[in-house]
Each structure stands twice: as structure tokens, then as C-alpha cells.
Design a protein around this nucleic acid. Structure first.
Lengths: 329, 329
DNA sequence: CCTAGCACTAATATTATTCAAGTGCTAAAA
DNA sequence: TTTTAGCACTTGAATAATATTAGTGCTAGG
């Protein structure tokens, strides 16, 4: 159990440390709490024993531990409503009815990254839930074509193909076949259908069917599984806790773009906003990630904000909440 | 004028410094040149007077100056043929006949970045030379559509549109009109034609023509002017000359993604490989950029490699040359 | 023109010294 | 039982003093 005064002290320390990353001493707090520094020291000591505070060295002030931040996020932080200035900036994008969801999200994340100095990540619908909606071919010249794939959730991907000595007519035949026979199939299963339903047919009446089949097979095979958009990578360089050590920055850069990490935050099926602190992120002990899923009609995705543990939690949480709400309705 | 021995010394210093970034002293060279260190010192002194060498402090060894590197690149470097190992790695991509140019380039640059530890940049055709080839619309549901634009040079861009209470039929009519009337127009001029040739027509027999017109107008307006692909951003963190100073890294990151810089290296209309050293890059005094344009059929673009002045010139140049050659034929 | 010799310089590393901020603990006061 | 004043003690940070080292420039003689 933790007393009210201890909570107060913990909150004060974290609030201060978030503003300015220097250890907090007992003297500063004694003024605010109207008791002596010795009393504060005693309380700090018990908070340290409970694992909520840490020291950087024997005679230093206290800094929050990972569990300290956890406690703060779960119990102490009051869910302040959003800063008017931030809201205004976001509204410029959010109230624009013309923008498609895609753009709303990428522009919002750009704004959030700019004003918070944290890195933001948007993960699009992972394509394994997508159904093939339509496929188009645009010929460029005698031997190059562009194949465009559209899924039911609005995901688009294109690929240039080089197929010399293949007639446009034959390609169009194949495309028509695909568009009538396997539209509606989950992207992941298209290639199986291609083999069993398209290949035998075109084998009979399309020249060079082998090569055409192979080309389309590759197109679907390369279909990007993940749509990742990372905004403000270098914001990490703005955080004092990282700038002293280049290796940590490298590590963070690598982990952030790592499929494993991205999958982890995407697959966490909780639909609410979730906060991962320090080691919970799988990135690095001083990194915190706040993420949420969103759903709007058929489209869905994940957005995440990456910063130091010493993150401006209430600001970021309120922005993310506001963003999610506005996207979803 | 510079004597043969001076050239030899300059080359030795640069070769050494590229391998290991510590100032080179006279003693080390005296062994190789079979003369006393004092002689070498005299020669170094005249090389410094000519502006080809520098000292880091009064009693330090010499390091190459920007002009030193310049002289090295222009006169001293023997255009070594490519390292077999590097060639093998590149060939895996280059010899793959299936890949479209786009993929060949992005995969090659990935390889080059990985093996050299430099950042690489690919600039696609800047769209102002592109002609509109075709436009497609794919309906997703009652109120969302995807518009896909393809240019004659194979550049593809898509955009989600939200247009409620507009019939698919009317949109298709408009698209057909665009496809018959303004295909072949330079992308930059499409919007003008849209206004003078399409707007008056659809005004007569398309419902909601105002909103449809506006939507298409925006689609073309947002058409990305530049296709930029930066690979291996964090390779900069591997270079010892930068890791001591976070601010320089930030500066380099910013400049690299800066439109002005990208335009500069793109517009330099020299068709050969070009080396920008230090201040010539406009990025930072210790940064060197090597770039080349390529042309293959209708497609063209620019590729660049960004690293420290202390760059492994002959390796990079031979790779770039090989890549360019292989792309162009 | 080359080189041996030497005085000199600046960066780097090591050590010592001081200073400030903060702690833990004890004993007394509330 | 809780709070507080007082004090010894610890650590990091800053500053200065010192030695070491890798190199230079210059001079004078080969």
C-alpha cells in the first residue's frame, strides 16, 4: 500500500522529471509539501523500497523507475483534456472532409510528431485480411506493363513488369479472367487460386501462358504485407536521454523498423489506447510507446507514438484519444 | 605544379586516412618512400601551402583538405575495376530479368548501402516531364473511390477519395472523358486542361459536377512532384567523423531530405558520374556525395551515395559505374 | 637536395583538489 | 508515533596541475 502523501510525492517527482530530466531532491519538494526535507527523504526512501523511485548514485536525488511511470500512468495521471492549441492544429486536418482516411492519418501524425518531438508510426491494414477487389493493367510500351492491385479495404499496390514478346491482348485476357474468377479472394490465397483456377485455363488459349502466369504469381507474392509509415525518425535525436550514446540511438532506429516490434504492437488486440513503458516495449529500457488501434468502416490500422519513458503522458494520451475518436466517427 | 613525389605522398596520405581516420605523420611515410622523415615533412609542408593538406593542430600529422580530395579524385585515383565480391552481390539483382527498373534500383541501392555503410538515394523521374497515360477509378463502397494515375514513364500514384451522394456512373463518365481528351498531356498542365476542357462538358450532363471536378483537381494537384527513396539513413551513424556531434547528424539528416538539395543533385544535367566534396554538396563540410543520372528507354532518374569526405572513392565509383552501365543496357 | 638533431607544441590521459547537491541516520521535539 | 534539525558522508562535475606522446619546424652539415 502506498499513502496519499507518497502518491503526491511520486506524482510531483514524475511531473518535474518529465519537464526537466534531472534527479529531484528532497529540498525542492519540502517547500511544496510544507514539511521538512527530512520527512520527504523518509517518504522517498520507502517509495524507493517499493520500486517506484530510483537513484542515479548514492547521494543523488530521485528519478522515477519503470514501475514508477507505470503507477503514474495507471493511477496518478488525471486525464486532462486537450490543450486548445494542439487541438486547433489537429482540427485543420481532422475537419477537412475532403481528405481520405489515409491522408488524415499521415497528416495528423506529422503534426503530432512536430509538436511533441516524438516519433510516430502508422501501420496500415495488414493485407492478410484484405480481399482482392480489382486488378488493372496499363501498358507502357511493347514490353513493359504496370499491374495495379486494389483490395476491398482500399489498399493499392502497383508493380512494373517487363514481359517481352508477350501480346497485350493475352495479358488482358488473363487480367479479365482474374477479375471475374478470383476477385473477392483474400490476398493471401490469391496465388493458390491463380495456380488452380487461372493457370489451367490460360494454358489452353493464351500464348506464353507460362511467363504470364509466373509474372502475376510474382506480383501477388511480392504484395507488401505491411504498410508502415514512420514519421519524424530523427525526433529521437532531440531527446537528451539518448543523445549521449549513439549506440542506443542506432538500436532504437533498428528496433523501430523491425518487423517483430511492429507486429507486436499491431497484434496486441486491445482496442483501447495502450502504454508500453521501458522494457515492455522490447526496444530499450528508456523507450516508451503509446499505441491504439482504430477502425473506420472497413479500414483499420494502428498508430503509435515513440518517445522516452519521460514522456509527456497526458498530452500525448489526450491527443491520441482525440485523434482516434475523430477518425472513428 | 606538383611533383611526382608530392603526388605520391598525397595519395598515400589519403589512402591511409580513408582506411583509418587519424592524421598521418611523416615517419610512417618515410619508411614507404625510403627517404627521411624530414624530407617527407618538407614535402608535406609544400602540399599544405598548396592547400591540399591540413593539420588538426600545430604539431599534428596531416589530413587531406577538401581540395586534397578533389585532386585525388580528379588526378590520382586509378579507376580500379570492381571488387569481385561486390560484383557478385549486385549481380544477383542486376541479372534478374524479371525485375522492373524500379525494383532493380531500389534493391541495388539497398545492397550498396549495406556493404559500404553509406546512405543511398534514388530520385525517380521528376513528374514534370511525365505525360498522363491513363487514369482509373475503382469504387470501394458507396462513397469511397480510389483514383489511380499512371504516367507514360511508368510512374503510378493513387489517392482515396470520399464523395458521398455522387453516382459511380457520373464519375466513370468523367474518367472516360479525361482518358479520351487529356491523356498525353504533361502532368503539370493537366489541371489547366481539366478546367478548360473537362469542366465545361461535365457541367452539362453530369450531376454534382462541381464536386467531381474539384476532387479530380485536387488529385492532380497533390500529385507528388518527386519520387524520393532514401535507403540506409542510419548509416551516417556509423561514420566516426559524425558520431561525436549529434547536431551535425541532425543537420545532415535534414539536408538530405531537403527538397533544395535533392533538386540540386538532380538538376545538375551532367550525364556522367559526378563527385561533390564537402562544401560543394551544400550539406556540410565533411560530407561527400557521388551521383549519376541514368536513362533507360523512357525512364530516367538519379542515384546518389552520401558519405563522409573520407569516402572509399574507387570502390563507390566502380560500383556506381557498374550499376549505371547495367541499368542502361 | 637530403637528413640528423633538437627545441617546441598541442592533444590526451592521469591525478589531485574543490564544490555543490543531496543522502542516511540519530536524537530530540511535537 | 511522526516530524524535524543537525551532521557526517558520498558522488559527480568542474578545474587545475602534470606527464606523456606523437608529431612538427627549423637549422646546420653531408
Amino acid at each position: 500500500m502506498i499513502t496519499t502523501r507518497q502518491e503526491k510525492i511520486l506524482k510531483l517527482i514524475i511531473d518535474r522529471y518529465i519537464k526537466d530530466p534531472v534527479p529531484v531532491g528532497s529540498k525542492a519538494l519540502s517547500k511544496i509539501l510544507k514539511c521538512s526535507s527530512a520527512t520527504v527523504r523518509n517518504e522517498m526512501q520507502t517509495l524507493e523500497e517499493k520500486g517506484l523511485l530510483e537513484k542515479t548514485h548514492t547521494s543523488s536525488g530521485r528519478i522515477p523507475s519503470e514501475s514508477g511511470y507505470r503507477y503514474y500512468v495507471d493511477n496518478l495521471m488525471q486525464p486532462k483534456e486537450m490543450n486548445a492549441d494542439d487541438m486547433m492544429k489537429l482540427n485543420i486536418v481532422l475537419k477537412n472532409q475532403q481528405l481520405a482516411l489515409n491522408d488524415v492519418i499521415s497528416k495528423s501524425l506529422q503534426i503530432i510528431s512536430d509538436i511533441t518531438n516524438y516519433t510516430t508510426i502508422a501501420l496500415g491494414t495488414s493485407s492478410h485480411n484484405n480481399l482482392l477487389k480489382q486488378i488493372e493493367v496499363v501498358p507502357l510500351d511493347e514490353e513493359s506493363f504496370i499491374v495495379i492491385i486494389v483490395t476491398d479495404k482500399g489498399y493499392v499496390e502497383h508493380k512494373n513488369l517487363r514481359l517481352n514478346e508477350v501480346s497485350l491482348d493475352d495479358i488482358k485476357k488473363t487480367v479479365n479472367l482474374i477479375n471475374t474468377l478470383i476477385v473477392g479472394t483474400p490476398i493471401d490465397e490469391v496465388n493458390r487460386k491463380l495456380e488452380y483456377e487461372i493457370k489451367p485455363i490460360i494454358g489452353n488459349y493464351v500464348m506464353q501462358h507460362e511467363r504470364i502466369y509466373e509474372a502475376f504469381y510474382n506480383v501477388f507474392n511480392d504484395f507488401t504485407k505491411e504498410d508502415v509509415n514512420i514519421v519524424g525518425r530523427h525526433k529521437i535525436l532531440e531527446q537528451p536521454e539518448f543523445t549521449t550514446n549513439i549506440d542506443r540511438i542506432k538500436e532504437i532506429y533498428n528496433k523501430i523498423e523491425d518487423r517483430e516490434f511492429l507486429q507486436k504492437i499491431e497484434e496486441d488486440d486491445d482496442n483501447n489506447i495502450k502504454v508500453y513503458i521501458g522494457d515492455e516495449t522490447g526496444i530499450e529500457k528508456d523507450v516508451t510507446v503509446i499505441k491504439t488501434k482504430f477502425k473506420k468502416g472497413k479500414e483499420e490500422g494502428t498508430i503509435a507514438i515513440v518517445g522516452p519513458n519521460r514522456m509527456d503522458y497526458d498530452r500525448v494520451l489526450s491527443m491520441l484519444e482525440y485523434l482516434k475518436e475523430n477518425i472513428e466517427r
